[in-house]
Design a protein around this nucleic acid. Structure first.
Length: 187
DNA sequence: TAAGTGATCTCT
DNA sequence: GAGATCACTTAA
C-alpha cells in the first residue's frame, strides 16, 4: 500500500460532526466498481448534528429511515430526495447520536445529486460501513488544507428548519475550487 | 422560473 | 390508506 494514501477509519469519523466535516475537505472519495477505481477530491460538505438540529432528518426522532444515522461512525447513509436524486452522507459521532456529514461537492462535480449519479451511488450502499467491501471509502492523500482556504456558510435548502438552524454555519467548502455559481443569493 | 419525481412521515 | 413534504436538477 502506498503510504501517501491513508484510508480513513471509524476513528476519524467518531468526533464532532463539524470537525469531521471540516477535515473531510481535501480528502479523496474513492469509488470502486468492479476493476474500475475513481477518486475525487472532496470540496464541499454540510453537517447535520443530532436531534436538536431541526434541519437534520433525525430531529423528528428515530425512524426506520433515520436509524442509520444512529449507527456507528463511518457508516454510509444514502437516501432519495425529490424522487430522483440520491444523497451521500457519512455518519459521524458516537453510536446512538444521530449526526452525519452530507457530501455535497467533489472536484469537477457540482451538486450532490450529480455526484451520486456519477459515482453510481444508490440505496444498496445505505447502512454499509465506509470500507473496501462497500467499494466506497475516503483516503487522505497528504494534502494539507489550511484554515484560511476553508469557507463556512449557511446550509442549503433548509429554511424550513427555522432561522436559528438554517443560519448555522455548518457548510464547509474549499475556496480555491469554488464552483462557478451564479451570484450567491443568500437572503 | 417552474416543474418533475417517489420514498417517507403524519394524520385520519 | 391518503396527502403533504422534501437536504435538487434540468430545460426553457
Amino acid at each position: 500500500m502506498d503510504n501517501k494514501r491513508k484510508k480513513l477509519t471509524a476513528r476519524f469519523f467518531n468526533r464532532r460532526v463539524t470537525t469531521v466535516a471540516r477535515d473531510l475537505l481535501g480528502k479523496y472519495l474513492v469509488r470502486k466498481i468492479g476493476d474500475k477505481e475513481m477518486a475525487f477530491k472532496i470540496t464541499e460538505v454540510e453537517s447535520y448534528d443530532g436531534e436538536k438540529d431541526l434541519a437534520c432528518h433525525a430531529s423528528k426522532g428515530r425512524t426506520m429511515r433515520t436509524e442509520v444515522m444512529y449507527g456507528e461512525a463511518g457508516t454510509i447513509y444514502v437516501y432519495l430526495i425529490y424522487g430522483m436524486y440520491y444523497m451521500l452522507n457519512i455518519v459521524t459521532g458516537p453510536k446512538d447520536y444521530p449526526a452525519a456529514v452530507l457530501v455535497r461537492g467533489l472536484e469537477g462535480i457540482n451538486g450532490p445529486g450529480r455526484l451520486t449519479k456519477t459515482l453510481a451511488i444508490n440505496r444498496k450502499l445505505n447502512g454499509l460501513p465506509l470500507a473496501f467491501t462497500a467499494g466506497l471509502w475516503i483516503e487522505d492523500r497528504g494534502e494539507v488544507v489550511s484554515k484560511k482556504d476553508i469557507e463556512k456558510t449557511a446550509r442549503i435548502g433548509v429554511e424550513y428548519a427555522g432561522p436559528i438552524w438554517s443560519q448555522k454555519l455548518y457548510r464547509f467548502m474549499l475556496k480555491d475550487s469554488r464552483p462557478n455559481k451564479k451570484t450567491a443569493k443568500i437572503k
